[in-house]
Amino acid sequence: MSLLSFDTATDYFLLTFVTVVLMCMIGVIVSKLLTSSAKPFSQLKSFESCKSPDCFRCAKVKDVLNVSFQRFLQYSRKTVTVNPADENMGLDRIKHSFHESLLTENSTDMTEMETIAHNQSYMLQQHSQKPVIFSLLDLKSEPFWDGVLKDDILKLEKNYEIIMDEFNAIFYHGKASDGWAMNSTPTGTWSIFCFINQGSVIPQNAELCPKTWQIVQSLQNLMTDCVFGNVAFSVIYRGTKITEHYGPTNIRLRCHLALQAPSSGSLTVNGISKKWKEGKCLLFDDSFLHSVEYHKASSRTESTPDGHSVLSSQASPDLTAETGNQDECTGEENACIRSILMLDFWHPGLTDKERKALGYSFSTLGTCVES
Results as ranks from 00 to 15, higher is better:
1 M>R: 10
3 L>Q: 14
4 L>P: 01
5 S>Y: 07
15 L>S: 15
15 L>W: 08
18 V>W: 06
24 C>D: 09
27 G>F: 08
29 I>V: 15
30 V>Y: 08
32 K>S: 11
35 T>G: 15
41 F>K: 02
41 F>V: 06
52 S>Y: 02
52 S>D: 15
55 C>S: 15
57 R>S: 09
59 A>I: 00
60 K>C: 08
63 D>T: 14
74 Q>T: 12
76 S>P: 00
82 V>G: 03
89 M>E: 09
93 R>K: 13
95 K>W: 09
95 K>F: 13
97 S>A: 09
98 F>L: 09
99 H>E: 12
102 L>F: 04
103 L>E: 10
107 S>F: 08
108 T>D: 10
113 M>G: 15
116 I>P: 01
122 Y>K: 01
123 M>N: 13
124 L>C: 09
126 Q>N: 12
128 S>L: 09
131 P>D: 12
133 I>E: 04
133 I>N: 02
134 F>K: 04
145 W>I: 01
146 D>L: 04
147 G>K: 11
149 L>F: 01
156 L>T: 05
159 N>F: 03
160 Y>L: 00
163 I>D: 01
169 A>N: 15
172 Y>G: 00
175 K>G: 10
175 K>N: 12
177 S>G: 05
181 A>Y: 04
184 S>Q: 12
185 T>M: 05
185 T>K: 00
188 G>Y: 01
188 G>M: 04
196 I>R: 02
197 N>L: 10
199 G>E: 02
200 S>P: 00
202 I>F: 09
205 N>V: 07
214 Q>S: 15
216 V>E: 02
218 S>K: 08
228 F>R: 02
230 N>R: 01
231 V>N: 02
232 A>H: 04
237 Y>A: 13
241 K>R: 14
241 K>L: 05
248 P>C: 07
250 N>T: 07
252 R>K: 15
253 L>E: 05
259 L>E: 05
261 A>K: 02
266 S>D: 05
282 L>M: 14
285 D>V: 01
286 D>T: 07
291 S>Y: 04
293 E>F: 07
299 S>I: 05
307 G>A: 10
308 H>D: 13
313 S>Y: 09
313 S>A: 08
316 S>Q: 10
328 E>H: 11
329 C>I: 00
330 T>Q: 00
330 T>Y: 00
339 S>G: 13
339 S>F: 04
339 S>M: 03
351 T>Y: 04
351 T>D: 04
355 R>E: 07
355 R>I: 15
362 F>D: 07
365 L>E: 04
366 G>I: 02
368 C>E: 11
369 V>M: 10
